[in-house]
Each structure stands twice: as structure tokens, then as C-alpha cells.
Design a protein around this nucleic acid. Structure first.
Length: 835
RNA sequence: GCCGAAGUGGCGGAACGGUAUACGCGGUGGUCUCAAAAACCACUCCCCUCACGGGGUUAAGGGUUCGAAUCCCUUCUUCGGCACCA
């Protein structure tokens, strides 16, 4: 017989080491062959489950935040798949937008090339995470096959009166050289580059999101975090009140000046009237002697930045116009002021000044010595001269000094005065929103061109649908100059009018990228359709999205826009549901190990690739999920990863070292064997309950506990004694861990030859009866203080337990000689003597 | 200022109104080793006590309850959002 070569002998004697890099690559290849995660539109006997996570911007590299977000989402999706659902978890790239354009300018590249090479790189990184993506559904929003339909959707909006063009004061970022939506201005600064935003009058395209303001306030169908709902509700900012018509008489004409107020009940307290500097009345009503001053003030106000104007600490400023309006409630002549604390864009850009009962009006009146009048008072209030007041009275009470209305409550007065004004045609009930229409024009290159043609003869003409896409030119000059780059490209700009065939100009602005992300979740489910944006039947099989995960920072932008889109598309008959995302979950943010936000300047950035190389993708995944609750995020701890890596090592070792038990039978049933069974069922219960809640930290802790218990029972010889129960428990542990650590569990699983992949297995079920221990420990309290505990069989009767507890040595010490006033027994939980 | 969330060991964090501090990190001691690393074992909230045992503790104070980290009120702190929206 030939001698066994030394190397082969070594292989048979030494247990295989855990080599994560090897097995992770190997498993990922196998998953691709098995098409794990690639989902058919219909699988007999399975319910479709659309599991969506916010698509990334292709910045070039996946950062640890992507790992965090996608791991949690993937663990959930894998869990649902094992639970028997036909789960689709698609991915794509939100590829248009400023960062690409700016990066391209900096590097002297084409934004298209830069973006596409980033996407290629990120696809590789996304594969390495071991996420079960539904790759065939991938979309890239800057691809003509995609933005053709973004443009098509713009045309549908236009056709249905939801897109309109207007010249208006828009938010302008001097650095990005483009206008911004209201939502993209944060504290008066550009959301992207932090530059102070100024206001610029410019022709812009807007979407009529305000038409849906009321419906957007209805969250009944949604399982969303309460704070997100509250934020959207506040953002929409519905205010109920009244529209009241004041009248101004100049030499030439009588002008109707409406205001919006939430306190029509205080109308008898009006002592002045304020209009915004941009209000058209300013010019008309100002008397000649004051024209110079008023004009100066208006120019001054227009020069102020948004930040300056929004500063609430700033003392009130304003100027008297010399003109007056008439209060429709009592015919009083009211002086008109111009002041920049009144916003042109809200209500009617005018305010009735009630200094007695409004903080801002109070400040203004004090500053300029205007009279203050009390028209609301508490029932037992001692009235003092408002000139002595240090603050306005904003509390609701009873109406005073208001003619025939005196004595009403505030609520009664509101109804009464609105009725009276309405009768005289001077007012009515009204609702106003803080939400503004969505400004979608951008004066930048890297976006979907707005499919509109301007013709001298025919005006604004939509591009016919069969001429889409309006393609972005290649190799265009796109440096920001303040004018849309496309306007400077004659080949793009000059076209013919679709109506008259004469020479015309293409719209040169591109669309806000939020437009692309407002419908990508629809396109995923029919990603390669070249005849339509989607086939309604395909959409109906999957949508609405059952679970959507993503950052909370998208609350008032993407999430609001997407809801608006779906409602608009529903009214056009293009989709059949009201809401895009049934359930929403916000993952938290991973901080640096110094508990600070990660940033290059702080030097606390964690590079996922290097940690993966040092440990494994599974270790990084599990550690991220173990850090804390998924919605809380938290600081990264290098030592913490090590701890989790140890856990995976121990799993591996146990897996390898117990392979010989696989087909062994347990000789006889024993208390030890049933303890292993109980352990297993308890574990399934605990873990299964927490996956749907995204409480991965608890799941991993439970699995660690179980592993510790299995290790104890192994060192106690129980594994050999009850190999069936032990193996079953270990296999269950692997199944329960599989969504979080997909590689190591799959490798151990296939080594055991049970099936090709753990990820196609069914989720283990538990039996409630089998989760119960045969012996239970019952703590005993005396007067609510813990004094001891007893162990009793689980089936002991209440009386037996009370009996045993009463004779417990420590209890006797505390209750002897005292009268037991009350005995509280919580079944199987606790016993408490009250003496 | 307004709205919302949260405060638990040295650290990250567990805990249907029912044994607070699970699980992990860190620390201390030990086993193995020529030694180190790794691995494994034990201990590790605070105070009094050699010990047995006892007392205290979930930001602070009060309340409800046989029993409160958990429910209610007040205060403080941190984080997130909004902020002259009439």
C-alpha cells in the first residue's frame, strides 16, 4: 500500500480552520449560482413581500453607515424569506445630482463617466456585504432608459395641471448656482454646501404638492414612527382660521386687502396693519411724503439673507406708510406699516396687528409706540392698563371691549365673527398651510432635462411623449455660471416647435433629483420595460412597499415627495393605492468610537473594507447589529467587533467539533435531553419575536446565551449523551443566526450536508408548551422586598407553592410573629407576603 | 421659544408593572506555556462586614401600587426637528 503523503495526512487529522475570507467568497459565488434573492413576480403558494431600502447615491465608496443600514434590512428580508414569503429586496443608484457634477468639475471629468465608474465599484462592494439583493431589478436613475420615464412623469404632471411655471422669488444658492426647494434650505443655508441662501426672482417649474396637503396629513394607513408623522404634520403646518378683508382707499381706487388670521376673535384688538416688504400694496398705499423711507426699507429688506430674516432674536423693524385700511369689524381706520417680520409667502403676506394678544405684534407695538388694546380676558382677571403689560395675553378666555360680542368665549367669538364677516362679504373661514409648492427646476447640468420647448408663437409646449427622452448632451460644457449649462449648448438648446415646426428653444433647466427618487420603487418592479414606465399589473403584484428602511433625514423631502407622487399617480389612474410605504423604519447613525459624528477632519472614520479584511463580513454585520437597538445607532467600538468575532469563532469551532454527532441517536430520554429541547424552543421564540421588530441586538445576545449554554452542556458530556437533541439545538442556532451571519452559517450548514444552502430553509417553529421549564424558580418577597426564592416543579399547585414559601427559612424570619395581611401570588412569577 | 425622543455599572446596552444590571466590551485573578498571544475557568453596580449577612442603587424630587427603570406630576440634562407661518 502506498504511503499517504504527509500533507494529506495533515488534512485528515487537523480540523478545518475558520477562514472567513475564503468561505465568504465561496458562499457568495454559490448564492449567485443559486440566485438567492433573485425574485420571480409570482411564486405559487408564496405571498410577495416588497422589502425596500433607500437607494444609495453613488459617491464611490460604501461607508459604514451603508453597512449598518443594509445589514439590518437584509437580516429582516432574509428572515421574511425563511418565513416563506417571496421577498424582493432591490437595489439601485440615485445617480443624478450635484455631488457628481461638482466632483467631475474638480477632477476635470465627465459626470457620466465619474458616476458610472463609482457605480461599478459600489456594485462590487455591495456584493461583498453578503446582502441578498434582487439584482436583476437594479435601476440607475441617470440612464436614459430611466430618465426617459422621469420626463414622461413630468409630462403627466403637466397634463394634469400639477406642474406649472411661474416667476417667483426662489431660494438661490450662490455656491451651487441653482435654485432649491423649500425643503432643501436648512436654517437659511443650502442643505448641500451650507452656503447662505438668497432670494432670486426667476422663472421656475413647480409641482402643486399643496393640492394634496390635506390628504398628506392623513396617516391612517401607515405604520410609521410617530416622530416622522409628527414632523411631516408640522412641515405641512395646517392652520385653521379666517380670511378677513380689510380695505384700503387711495385717491385712485379702493383696494381689497385680505389677511389670514388664526385669531379672528381678536379683531376688535387690531391697532395696526402690517404688510410684507414684497407686498404689492406697499407701493400703492404709501403717501408721497413717506415714499423715500418706505422704498429704502424695502430695498434694505430685500438685501437681507434668509438667515438674517429668520433670526427671531433680531429686534423688529418696520416703517409706516402713511396709509390706512378699514377694519371690517368696526370700521376703524388702521395705520399700515411695512415690516419684514411678515412673510410674503405665507397667508396673504399681510397681518392684522393685535398687540394685546400676539407676541410678535406686541413686540412691534412696543418698539414703535403703537397702542395696545385688550379684547380677551380671564373670567376673574383684574383689568390693568395694557400700557403696563410686559407680555401679551395669549391664553384663551372671554371676549371684552368688542361691542356686541363682549362676553362670548373665544371659541364662540370665532364662530360669531366669521359668520358676521361672511354675511357682509368681508371674510370667511379659511385654512392655510406652511407647505409650499415643490420647486423642481435646477440650473445645473447633471439631471434629467425638463421636457419642454419654448416657442415664440406657441409658448410653452411639452415635448411629445414619443420624442422622449430629451437626452443630455455628451461632453457638454457644464461649469456653473448661474445660467443653466444646457442654455449654452446650441445643439441642445435650438430645436423646432412640436406644434408649428418653427424654430424654438428647449427648456434648459434640469429636474431636482428628488424627482428621480419619487418613483424608483415603482420602476424596480418593472425595471426593463421599454414601452411604459411600468406595467400596472406588475406593480399591483408588489406594491405598496411593505417595509421601507432608511434615514430619518428624508422625512420632509423624499418621503413627502414620494407620498405626493403616489397620490397624484393614483388620481391619474396609473397606480391603485394611496401610499407608497406601508411600514417605515429609520435606522440610527453609526458614530465614531469617540461618540462623535464620523468625519474626515475628526479622523474617526471607520473604513468597512479594512475591518472586513481584519475579521469578516459576518463579524462586521453582527457587530453593527449588536451595538444597540437598530433605530438608535451608536458609537463604533473596535473591541466590540473583536467580541463578536470571538462569538463567530466559537460557533465555527462548535460546528466542526460536533460534526461527528450528526447521525448518532440518543439512547434514552432524560431530564438533560428535555432541557436541551426547552432551550431550543425558548431560543426560537425569543429570536422569532424580535426579527420583525428589528431588535437585532437582543437576538444576538439571545444566541450568545444559547451558545454558552450549549458549550456548558457539551463540557458536561451532554452532547455525547443526547446527540440528537444537541445537534437539533445547534442546527436551530445556525438557522436563527443565518439572516445576520449568512456566510458562516451557510458554510457550516452545507458541511453537514443537510441541504445546499441554509438560506432556502424554512424558519424553525416553536411549541409554546415546550418553552416551559419543568422546574421553576419563584422569588419570594416580604413587603415587596426580595427575601429568597424557591424551586418548585412547574406543575405544582398554587397552594403547594404558598405552603412551601411560608415555611422558607428566610421568610419565616421576616414573618414570624406578624399577621399576614395579604398574600399576592403571581402565577409562576413571584410571591409577596404583606405583613 | 415650540414639538418630539431619551437619561440604567468603568463602556455599548438587557429587562409583558413582578429576582434590575442579561449579552458583549473593559478590568482582576487563575489554567495552559520556557515565555507571550490565542483559548479556557472564576470574580467584577456601590456601601458596611474576615465571613455569614445586611443596606442602598435605574438623572433629581414627589405620587399611584402589595410591588415602579417601567405609569402619573415637577425639575434638570442630552439629542433630533421646527422656528417672526399671523
Amino acid at each position: 500500500m502506498a504511503k499517504t503523503p504527509p500533507s494529506a495526512a495533515k488534512n485528515t487529522t487537523e480540523p478545518p480552520q475558520y477562514r472567513p475570507q475564503e468561505i465568504e467568497q465561496k458562499r457568495q459565488k454559490i448564492w449567485e449560482q443559486l440566485k438567492i434573492g433573485y425574485t420571480q413576480d409570482h411564486v405559487p403558494g408564496k405571498q410577495n413581500f416588497y422589502s425596500l431600502t433607500m437607494l444609495p447615491y453613488p459617491s464611490g465608496d460604501l461607508h459604514i453607515g451603508h453597512w449598518y443600514a443594509y445589514t439590518g434590512h437584509d437580516a429582516f428580508s432574509r428572515f421574511m424569506r425563511m418565513k416563506g414569503y417571496n421577498v424582493s429586496q432591490p437595489i439601485g443608484f440615485d445617480a443624478f445630482g450635484l455631488p457628481a457634477e461638482n466632483a467631475a468639475i474638480k477632477r476635470n471629468l465627465d459626470p457620466h463617466d465619474w458616476t458610472m465608474s463609482n457605480i461599478a465599484n459600489m456594485r462590487g462592494q455591495l456584493r461583498k456585504m453578503g446582502v441578498s439583493w434582487d439584482w436583476p431589478r437594479e435601476v440607475v436613475s441617470c440612464a436614459p432608459e430611466y430618465y426617459k420615464w422621469t420626463q414622461w412623469l413630468f409630462l403627466q404632471m403637466y397634463k394634469h395641471g400639477l406642474a406649472y411655471r411661474t416667476k417667483a422669488l426662489a431660494n438661490w444658492c450662490p455656491n451651487c448656482q441653482t435654485t432649491l426647494a423649500n425643503e432643501q434650505v436648512v436654517n437659511g443655508k443650502c442643505e448641500r454646501c451650507d452656503t447662505e441662501v438668497i432670494r432670486k426672482e426667476i422663472d421656475q417649474w413647480l409641482f402643486r404638492i399643496t393640492k394634496y396637503a390635506d390628504e398628506l396629513l392623513n396617516f391612517d394607513e401607515l405604520n410609521w414612527p410617530e416622530k416622522t408623522i409628527v414632523m411631516q404634520r408640522n412641515w405641512i403646518g395646517r392652520s385653521e382660521g379666517a380670511e378677513v378683508h380689510f380695505t384700503a382707499a387711495t385717491k385712485k381706487e379702493t383696494i381689497d386687502v385680505p389677511v389670514f388670521t388664526t385669531r379672528p376673535d381678536t379683531i376688535f384688538g387690531v391697532t395696526f396693519f402690517v404688510i410684507a416688504p414684497e407686498h404689492p400694496l406697499a407701493e400703492k398705499i404709501t403717501i408721497p411724503q413717506r415714499k423715500k423711507k418706505v422704498r429704502e426699507y424695502i430695498i434694505e429688506a430685500s438685501k437681507k439673507s434668509e438667515i438674517e430674516r429668520q433670526d427671531t432674536e433680531r429686534p423688529k423693524t418696520g416703517v409706516f406708510t402713511g396709509g390706512y385700511v378699514i377694519n371690517p369689524a368696526n370700521g376703524e381706520k388702521i395705520p399700515v406699516w411695512v415690516a419684514d417680520y411678515v412673510l410674503a409667502g405665507y397667508g396673504h403676506g399681510a397681518v392684522m396687528g393685535v398687540p394685546g394678544h400676539d407676541e410678535r405684534d406686541f413686540d412691534f407695538a412696543r418698539k414703535f409706540g403703537l397702542p395696545i388694546r385688550q379684547v380677551v380676558a380671564d373670567d376673574n382677571e383684574e383689568l390693568i392698563d395694557p400700557a403696563e403689560w410686559t407680555a401679551p395675553k395669549t391664553a384663551y378666555g372671554r371676549i371684552v371691549n368688542s361691542g356686541k360680542f363682549t362676553g362670548l368665549t373665544v371659541e364662540e367669538m370665532k364662530t360669531a365673527i366669521i359668520a358676521e364677516l361672511q354675511q357682509n362679504g368681508m371674510g370667511k373661514k379659511a385654512v392655510t398651510y406652511r407647505l409650499r409648492d415643490w420647486l423642481i427646476s435646477r440650473q445645473r447640468f447633471w439631471g434629467a432635462p425638463i421636457p419642454i420647448v419654448h416657442c415664440e408663437k406657441d409658448g410653452v409646449v411639452p415635448v411629445p411623449e414619443d420624442q422622449l427622452p430629451v437626452s443630455l448632451p455628451e461632453h457638454a460644457k457644464f461649469k456653473p455660471t448661474g445660467e443653466s449649462p444646457l442654455a449654452l449648448d446650441p445643439a441642445f438648446r435650438n430645436t423646432t416647435c412640436p406644434v408649428c415646426g418653427g424654430p424654438a428653444l428647449r427648456e434648459a433647466d434640469t429636474m431636482d433629483t428628488f424627482m428621480c427618487s419619487s418613483w424608483y420603487f415603482l420602476r424596480y418592479m418593472d425595471a426593463h420595460n421599454d414601452k411604459a414606465a411600468w406595467d400596472p399589473q406588475k406593480i399591483a403584484q408588489w406594491l405598496p412597499v411593505q417595509v421601507y428602511t432608511g434615514g430619518a433625514e428624508h422625512t420632509t423631502m423624499h418621503l413627502l415627495y414620494a407620498r405626493f407622487f403616489v397620490k397624484a399617480l393614483r388620481d391619474m389612474g396609473l397606480v391603485q393605492f394611496n401610499e407608497p410605504f406601508k411600514r417605515l423604519f429609520h435606522q440610527g447613525i453609526v458614530l465614531g468610537s469617540d461618540s462623535q459624528k464620523m468625519s474626515k477632519s475628526r479622523g474617526n472614520v471607520v473604513a468597512p473594507d479594512s475591518v472586513v479584511d481584519a475579521y469578516s463580513a459576518d463579524a462586521v454585520r453582527c457587530y453593527l447589529m449588536f451595538m444597540g437597538p437598530f433605530d438608535m445607532g451608536g458609537p463604533w467600538s473596535p473591541k466590540g467587533v473583536e467580541g463578536v468575532a470571538r462569538f463567530l469563532n466559537r460557533i465555527w469551532t462548535m460546528g466542526i467539533e460536533t460534526e461527528h454527532l450528526l447521525h448518532k441517536k440518543t439512547a434514552a430520554s432524560s431530564p438533560e435531553a428535555s432541557a436541551l429541547i426547552t432551550l431550543r424552543h425558548k431560543m426560537i421564540k425569543r429570536v422569532s419575536e424580535h426579527y420583525p421588530q428589528f431588535r437585532f441586538n437582543i437576538i444576538i445576545a439571545a444566541l450568545m446565551e444559547t451558545l454558552n449554554a450549549l458549550q456548558d452542556s457539551r463540557s458536561g458530556g451532554l452532547a455525547e449523551q443526547c446527540p440528537e437533541e444537541f445537534t437539533e439545538a445547534f442546527h436551530t442556532l445556525l438557522l436563527l443566526l443565518a439572516p445576520l451571519a449568512p456566510h458562516i452559517t451557510d458554510e457550516l450548514w452545507s458541511r453537514r450536508g443537510i441541504s445546499q444552502s441554509i438560506h432556502t430553509q424554512n424558519w424553525p417553529e416553536y411549541d409554546e408548551e415546550l418553552t416551559k421549564d419543568s422546574v421553576i424558580t419563584i422569588p419570594i418577597q416580604v413587603n415587596g422586598k426580595l427575601r429568597g426564592s424557591i424551586e418548585v416543579p412547574a406543575d405544582a399547585t398554587d397552594d403547594t407553592i404558598k405552603e412551601i414559601a411560608q415555611t422558607h427559612e428566610k421568610v419565616v424570619k421576616y414573618i414570624s410573629g406578624k399577621e399576614i395581611r395579604k398574600l399576592i401570588y403571581v402565577k409562576g412569577k413571584l410571591i409577596n407576603f404583606v405583613v
